[in-house]
Nucleic acid binder design. Structure first.
Lengths: 246, 246
DNA sequence: TGGAATGATTGATAAATATCAATGCGTTAT
DNA sequence: ATAACGCATTGATATTTATCAATCATTCCA
């Protein structure tokens, strides 16, 4: 099971990320409230069908437009979830860190991926096929309700994002994005976050140059410190004010 | 049941909208795919607990921030669903016409209304309490899946809206909004739609003056005709082009 | 070690969009 | 009738934001 035979080239190679592959995925699942209602049997079933894969930074996990055959659980690393929009412009919806599930609005609708998911750091993810998941949902109504709760939570975040993107100026959006990264993505890292300029622009729906300029202003006012992709938030209160004022 | 005693003023008055109140709500429910999987008993239950109310234009049905105690079904009229954002600016998420259900992301999460729903035309709506609906969901897994499908469909529309609002210029957004109103809201009305200027601005996340100016340009090019709140789409292809180009 | 590629930065400029103020125009209330 | 109100319109202007072009730094690779 841990070794895969590639018959085309007649090579036996070790399954990727095998060393860190825990014996049973109950450990991961226990960290996600959405799976609270699963029975032992259902967890076992997931454990049997799941497939763990490692991705390097920049590698696409799901591509927008392809068939949605699996959902994934991020075990390690960091990924960004974004919509590929007009003229090669992307809109980053969120960053996802371990341990979290990534689904999509294609589930129960057209079974397509409507976003692209890309590894930002070295990432390992478990793939769980839609059919298994559907079977479990049909067996377990509490799990269905958990899913509804999960989706509704995301809808709520989308509502906030609508206001963030359409009713705030660039300063407010950048401050909001930095706070989001601090509070939700790079927690417990002492106010230190890490993001590429283009990603910051894609997260706030502005041009890269504009994002850089706002960042520079914040740096000049000592509200943040910048070193490459690392940004240190020196004055959170100040950022909160800027974000709030818009 | 059709008459309500108001004890404070000792007046017996006819329940609003009583005349048009159908005997049983099966008729409405049959028009909404989301309710396909309900049993006769479950439809009867909804029929017993629902409460039909009429609203005048401009009246708020649900107010953002209040407790979410019911979902509604729009039977007649037209409502707008919008987020109340910053500095009294609103963002209209969608218009809803009969027969459709209006829920919200508060369901299964914090049980609050995260949007405001307002009647645009004279509207009648049936209120169904959350508890009854929850009971039915727990009885009927297919209904739970229908709900998931419904929510996911809305998420997908929200994704389109993200791109619409953040990656298109004002011309594209106005054209897109006019086409949305034509295709989804004022269907089968010969290309004639009706909307206030402020609502068009709130739908496209721009100032009212900007919306008016774009509208005037389109009128000067004979792409649309304007008479008060009535707008006639003369050249749909042209609007599609403008919307597509952004 | 010298490109070549990638990403960050800056300045100059143009384009997009909002704001402000004034006016007009119906409808409603007194 | 007249005032008051809400909504639409227009012009002038200010602000916001994107684009373009050039430069710089860093890494990676042959």
């Amino acid at each position: 099971m841990d070794f895969i035979k590639n018959s085309t080239f007649n090579i036996t190679y070790r399954k990727m990320d095998d060393k860190k592959n825990p014996k049973h995925c109950g450990a991961c699942i226990s960290k996600m409230p959405i799976f609270n209602s699963l029975t032992e049997e259902q967890i076992d079933l997931i454990n049997q069908v799941r497939c763990r894969v490692k991705f390097n930074p920049g590698e696409v996990i799901f591509k927008q437009g392809t068939a949605m055959t699996h959902i994934i659980v991020i075990n390690e690393g960091l990924v960004k979830v974004y919509i590929e929009g007009i003229d090669n412009r992307n809109l980053i919806l969120r960053f996802v860190k371990p341990v979290s599930i990534i689904g999509g609005p294609g589930f129960f609708t057209d079974y397509k991926n409507h976003v692209t998911t890309m590894a930002v750091e070295e990432t390992s993810a478990c793939f769980i096929d839609i059919q298994t998941l559907t079977d479990i949902i049909k067996q377990n109504k509490d799990f269905a309700i958990s899913l509804l709760q999960w989706v509704n939570n995301h809808t709520l975040l989308n509502y906030y994002k609508f206001i963030e993107l359409t009713q705030k100026g660039m300063h407010g959006r950048i401050a909001g994005a930095l706070l989001y990264l601090h509070n939700d993505v790079f927690k417990e890292q002492n106010g230190e976050i890490s993001i590429k300029r283009q990603d910051l622009a894609d997260l706030t729906a502005m041009s890269k140059e504009s994002a850089i300029r706002i960042l520079k202003e914040l740096k000049d006012e000592n509200i943040i410190s910048v070193d490459g992709n690392t940004i240190i938030l020196n004055k959170i209160d100040n950022l909160n004010n800027i974000s709030f004022r818009g």
